[in-house]
Each structure stands twice: as C-alpha cells, then as structure tokens.
Design a protein around this nucleic acid. Sequence first.
RNA 1: UCCUCAGUAGCUCAAUGGCAGAGCGGCCGGCUGUUAACCGGUAGGUUGCAGGUUCGAGUCCUGCCUGGGGAGCCA
Length: 464
Amino acid sequence: MEKVLVRELIRDSGSYADRQVEVSGWIRSNRDQKAFGFIALNDGTHFNSIQVVYEREFLPNFDEVARLGVGSAITVQGKLVLTPGAKQPFEIKATAVILEGESPADYPIQPKRHTREFLREVAHLRPRTNLFSAVFRVRSLLSFAVHKFFQEKGFIYLHSPIITANDAEGAGELFRVTTLDPGNAPRSENGEIDFSEDFFGRKTNLTVSGQLEAEVFALAFRNVYTFGPTFRAENSNTARHAAEFWMIEPEIAFADLNDNMRLAEEMVKYLIRYILENAAVEMDFFNSFVDKGLRERLQNIVASEFERITYTEAIKILEGSREKFEYPVAWGRDLQTEHERYLTEKVFKKPVFVIDYPKEIKAFYMRLNEDEKTVAAMDLLVPGVGEIIGGSQREERADVLEKRMAEFNINLRDLWWYLDLRKYGGVKHAGFGLGLERAIMYITGVSNIRDVIPFPRTVGSCEF
RNA sequence: UCCUCAGUAGCUCAAUGGCAGAGCGGCCGGCUGUUAACCGGUAGGUUGCAGGUUCGAGUCCUGCCUGGGGAGCCA
C-alpha cells in the first residue's frame, strides 16, 4: 500500500481518487456514532487536516478506535473517496486503523479555543494547534524567502559570530559568555574579576548584532547579508521583545542611504508577496481568526510607494498636528511609538522612511551629514506596528568616525579592525536590520513575540 | 525598571462578605454522515502562596509569586 503525505493528497486528490492509500498522523478530533465515526487527522505536512471515516462493519477494532483521544498517533489504510458537496473535498474510508501512540485523557490540547497564555505553558504541544501550525509554517517560509531574495540578487550570506568581544555598539545589555566559576572567579589586585584568565582571555558576550562584521564582508564581497540569532539582556517585558531573536542584516558597498531605502522597500514587498502567494491557506486562517483586515493591509503595502521624509519634516508635521501626544515633540528628541504610528497610520497611511536623524540620538557609526547636525539614518515605519527596520549609511571617513567614537566614549583600540576598513580601500556603504520576529508578527497579525518564536526566551522564562 | 489588570475544576469563565457553579474536555449511555456534531447521565475543588480583619473571606487588607496589557528601550 502506498504511503502518502496529507500534503500530496490535498494538492492532488483527483489522481488519488478511489485508490488505496496509507496515511499516518495525529488525531485532532474523533466523533463516533453507533456504527461509524469520523477522525480529523493531521500529519503536519499541511495546515489542513483530512477526514477519516471508519465503520464498524469494516473495522474489527472499531470500539478501540472510537475510544482514541485527541493527540493519539495512528496509521490509517483505506480508500480515498472524493466527496464533492460536503464540507471537505475528500475523505478516506478506513479499512484498517493502527494505533502508533496513544494519548490519554489528560492531553492538554482540546478541540476548542485555548488562550495564548495557556498554550505558552505547553510550548511542546502547541505546534499541534491550528494557530501555531500556521505561524511556524510562515516562519519557515519567510526564512526561506529571505535567503531567496538575497541569493537571487547575488548577495553573499555571512555567518557573523555569535560569541564576540564587541560591546561598543551600545545596542543593549549583554549576555556575558564565560567559563569562569561565578563563585570563585580569579580577581585582579583591585578586586575586579580578571577576564584575562577566562576562556578567550578577555570579556566576551553573545552578539547583539552582526552589523560590524557584515561591514567587513561588504568591503570584500560588495553585497552581503547576515541572518542569525542575536541576544539582548534587556530587562524589558513587552509583547515585542525577546532575549533571543533572529535578525536579517544586509550590508551593501558603493551605496548610499537612497540605495539602502530602495533595497529595504524591495525586500519588504518581496517577503510579503512571497508569503501571500506561498502560504495562502495559512494567511486565510490569520485573516479570518487573528486579524480581519490583514490581507487587505498587506496587499496595500505591496502596491504602495513607500513615503520618504526627513526627521526634520516629521517633527514639523507632528508639531503642526492637532493630535494630543503623551510625549512632547521637539527637534532633537527621538520619535516615540505614538509619533511613529501617527505618521504612518494617520498622515501617510502607508509605510514611511524617516531619514536624517539628529546625530545625538543615533549610533556612532552612522554617517554625518553635510549639516553636521544629522546623520544618514533611516527608520521604516509601517501601519499597525511602527518601526520595523532601522538602518543607515555608515561613516566611511576615518577622521570623522574617530571623532564620533570619541564623542561616544568608545575606545578606538577595541575596534581597530573596524577603523582599518576605512584605512584600506574604504568606500561608502550602508545597511539595515530587520527583526525576523517583527516581520512575522506584521505578516501574520499575531501580536505577541512569544507566539512567533518556537521556544521563546524572555526575562525570567527559559522553559523547554 | 515603572504603571495597570488578573490568578476559582484539565481548559474557558461565573459566584452582592453568607451552601463552590456552568460550558467545553473526561468517563458511561444514546444516535445510520459528523464537521469545535448532537441528546441524556456522571465524576472532578487546599479558590496562586503566606499572614491579617470578621460570627463568617473566592470576595476586604498587607506582603510575596506567576501571568496578561501598557510605557521606556529597541529589532
């Protein structure tokens, strides 16, 4: 008998019609009557489950099968029958049902609505629910689409290091990496822990960004991207932050901020289009049960020209609006979430690049503009979420960069290799960072980052 | 870290300071085509933890724990 995946049956049910097949999977629901019953079977290869019909007349173990609970694993042999007019397009009339692994009555996932909070507590079982089946399918597809986009453009994929000694970027609190015994660490004369005795002979931490290393590769391969895990030890408990998350960081050489924005806009549209086309069933689910306006909003983004305004223009718009903001608007202050959302949702009603921020509120590596007050930074704001991408043209002039590092109290010696990039064949270059989880949240409408990461790591929580 | 809300059966939730309840799920039974099936019956509780007020606390007070939402910071 032919072993088949549910995905193949759903995509090509016509050619399987009236044939004997064998499928294996987990029971989503089981309803029995006196002489027959129905099982919704999901084998993980497709978002949808298929219906298995079993009849007392043909199954010697009918009573045993009728008692099988949700979550049980079974193998079904039987004939695929098309059922036009019924709720499901086809079903399998079972001639044999073999129990692979039982699931007792205390199985926590029931065929009913559970809260997200409860499902997080059973993160090892939640992939078997509709919502998380859809989320993690999209996460997988989106990851592939990221590679597809950049590889088609000839970008080199760089594995930036996960353990690093960089702590100069100021992107957030660091996770220390050490093999020293915390209770008995070697100490120097002044009583501080002596990291020269540590595994790497110096202080090291988990990376907060692969950007600096990406710049190294951009100045060798021209166009590169990183795509990997990053870590922030911030004590922030929100629906949008995790201690471990994935970032996509392209870096392009012989390119300025405009090239950077063009790349970001093209990438965002590509990723959304890819998911709309390749995860249509999952997107139907999100559009129906998670966020009713989702598909329309995404389609609008794909079709729209992203707006581009300067920070200074943004401040003028905000100052001229009659909206009451909780936080004051003034040139030199960073834009708050409420300001960003007002700009993208109320004023422009589409994605907006805000560029040329005051140098004081942005990172040291961003290129100083001619006015010497602003830097060539860009944030992409989108309706519904706010900031989704942050990037900049990098400072390629060694003297300006050194001056900026001094202003930020960054030790030149720690980043000697970063400065070398400006000394030897330095060219203008730019890049940006996109949080994978933020992108998944935006595309699926799922509003908590803990629900788009398989096993989320947040403050005080590292189960599984 | 700050503000705020919540914690009662396996799950989702009720219960005016006065007998601890329902739906779903489980179990038992019924039903000849179900779709989160339906109908009948049944079991299931240290009300997050520790104190306090009261004749009496799920309910009021204090502290702690856990979780949600918001803010800051950011991706």
